[in-house]
């Protein structure tokens, strides 16, 4: 290593905030506090509370609390998200991404419904109510029968169809080498045509597409 680099490294270490052990700031979190905020649920079921809910009860609750935006059958109202349908559309020109057609894990639905729904009244549902809604959404996606009851115990046995279609970011292999090959600076193409043009004032138009 050059002396210059060594000096730089030492200077860098001295200049950045010291990591010399604990600073003794903050206080211990109490179990009740952690329990109140630790609401996340993972695909392996970690974080699921005790409880259960039926499709039948879910239908009533959904009609009451969710249908105004998501539609009676999860088909969506206006630009709110659709929750059901869209199966086998992902490779089509206009893919429909729903819990049934796109979401890889059911735990995400449980987590998100409790965390953020109903819109504007977050964290107001009981565990049983969240199980009911998730059960009903499964039913809307033809994943379970109408007499199905979802609970903490059978939750992780439900697999969603699109789970296997996700892969980790592969741009390192599929894109970066191809986009790191140098550039042409002069006489790079024989001619140029305009192939498309945005419509004027798109941003203020009330509709698009």
């Amino acid at each position: 290593m050059s002396r210059f680099l060594k000096t730089l490294l030492i200077a860098g270490l001295l200049a950045s905030p010291a990591a010399a052990g604990k600073l003794n700031l903050g206080r211990a979190a109490l179990p009740a506090e952690v329990a109140a905020w630790n609401i996340d649920v993972r695909p392996d079921g970690q974080g699921l509370p005790a409880g259960s809910g039926s499709v039948i009860d879910g239908e009533e609750l959904f009609t009451d609390q969710c249908a105004a935006c998501h539609g009676d059958f999860g088909e969506a109202v206006g630009r709110w998200p659709a929750l059901a349908g869209g199966h086998d559309t992902l490779a089509e020109e206009r893919p429909v991404k729903t819990i049934g057609s796109y979401w890889p894990y059911l735990s995400t639905a449980y987590d998100y419904i409790f965390r953020a729904m109903p819109y504007g009244d977050a964290q107001s549902l009981t565990p049983d109510e969240v199980y009911q809604l998730v059960a009903y959404i499964l039913y809307l996606n033809d994943a379970v029968d109408e007499d199905f009851i979802l609970n903490k115990e059978n939750f992780t046995s439900i697999a969603l169809p699109n789970t296997g279609s996700f892969r980790l970011d592969d741009r390192d292999n599929t894109e970066y080498p191809a986009f790191s090959r140098g550039v042409c600076m002069t006489d790079c193409k024989p001619s140029v045509q305009i192939t498309g043009r945005a419509i004027k004032d798109t941003a203020s138009n009330t509709e698009s597409e």
Partner: peptide
């Protein structure tokens, strides 16, 4: 954790119907 904003949203749907996730 596979939360909503890293599964249903902010994942990149490819032409063949597969998706990239954690494209940070």
């Amino acid at each position: 954790w596979h939360q909503r904003e890293e599964t249903s949203k902010y994942t990149d749907l490819m032409a063949d119907g597969t998706s990239r996730r954690f494209t940070w």
